[in-house]
Nucleic acid binder design. Sequence first.
DNA 1: GCGACAAAATCGTCAGACAAGTATACTCGT
DNA 2: ACGAGTATACTTGTCTGACGATTTTGTCGC
Lengths: 232, 232
Amino acid sequence: MDGQTSFPLGPSSLTEALYESVRKRIVNGEIAPGEKLTEIRIAGEYSVARPTAKACLERLTALGLLRRSTHKTAVVPKLDEDDIRDLYFSRETVERAAVATLARTATVPPEAVRAQAAMKAAAGDTAANGAFASQVEADIAFHSALVAAVGSRRLSRMHEVILGEVHLTMGQFQAHRTTHPMNVVHEHDDILKAIGDGDPEQAQRLLAHHLDQAQGRLLSQLHRERSEEAPA
Amino acid sequence: MDGQTSFPLGPSSLTEALYESVRKRIVNGEIAPGEKLTEIRIAGEYSVARPTAKACLERLTALGLLRRSTHKTAVVPKLDEDDIRDLYFSRETVERAAVATLARTATVPPEAVRAQAAMKAAAGDTAANGAFASQVEADIAFHSALVAAVGSRRLSRMHEVILGEVHLTMGQFQAHRTTHPMNVVHEHDDILKAIGDGDPEQAQRLLAHHLDQAQGRLLSQLHRERSEEAPA
DNA sequence: GCGACAAAATCGTCAGACAAGTATACTCGT
DNA sequence: ACGAGTATACTTGTCTGACGATTTTGTCGC
């Protein structure tokens, strides 16, 4: 994109914009897993000072989107099977609480419904370029809306961090390409229905199943890739 | 204290030690809620450069131990009723998942048992100076051990953040002073027993009750303080 | 070919400086 | 005397530049 004209810096500041931009590049897979991100490189690419770049990398590291230890350069993490299981266990913990809470008052978040519409639209033109990315976006938006509707700042904060890593793995494995997006849409619809019916147990059950499916897709994709690059 | 002789910096680095020190001062209530923490003040108190102090404050802000908006001085947050409810809702979400998981395999974490012993010891000499602080420490350690035993890095990370804020409020309200610590000890024991019995439902029930009690103590303490400083 | 030493790259921390925004205090008009 | 607008001081955001420490890489000798 247009990299040199002054950025449309949304919020207040340089640091924020830099962070958002690098974050996007990571979760969208533009920066491959295992790739090294030095402070100098970031500073150079964006024409900012090294301390600014440093702060950016530190923030991303805190969110799990980068790994680095003292005096070593940051790298985009390549999540293994244990990571994915751990990630989905944490995710399930948070989202279970969310859907149960919503179901208790039969509150169907309008934002989630909107995300569903976007997902259906994206599912329509699977051939189109960038359709994959917008599917992932819509999927993330759906789950995000579910948690946001609970109204708990801290739950949302935790979920945001987790979804960041989820987004990262999805971008890396492109698991959505190997499955029919309409299945996901239908599972989402079922969850919304259970919430609307005021049935917390059912909502949790369906959610757990949905997440299990997603985790399974990621794991099988992981194994496939591993077996391909085995002859080293 | 001795500010000029090089610090006995425990871990790797200056930043880390600074962060730990300031964090402790905040959660222990040495820095009162509402108190302002300028970068310059921290830099001066610890004889470090301002960027170092800045990074420290940013980290603490990310953890919810400080609040600040752009171009405004960081302050130690004074949590209101909504905050406490939100905090305990999130806490319950995480710890429920933990005890349920442990109970499913009837795994009683040795660390938690050890924390219980420490708590009993601290409960013995309520009169002693600093006994209150060690009670809180032991309490935190117990719940921390529970979650750590699950073995989920991400769940532990989330819990760590939440416990930071819990620690903060406990230090501020000193709620433990108004209650018999042995009650807390017994509730902990009950939870451990349910885990050992392999009864996830019971463990979750007892945990929820335990957290409800704790939240209630904090809220009543909050109301008491508010009514005292009402005539403004 | 392998291990040890030297060189390069990178990070951690610091000092100093300027711009920009916020909050406070002061002045002026009514 | 009091309120409103402005001016000043304080604090933060960002940059430039630099030095020591540590990790990594590359080379040399055995």
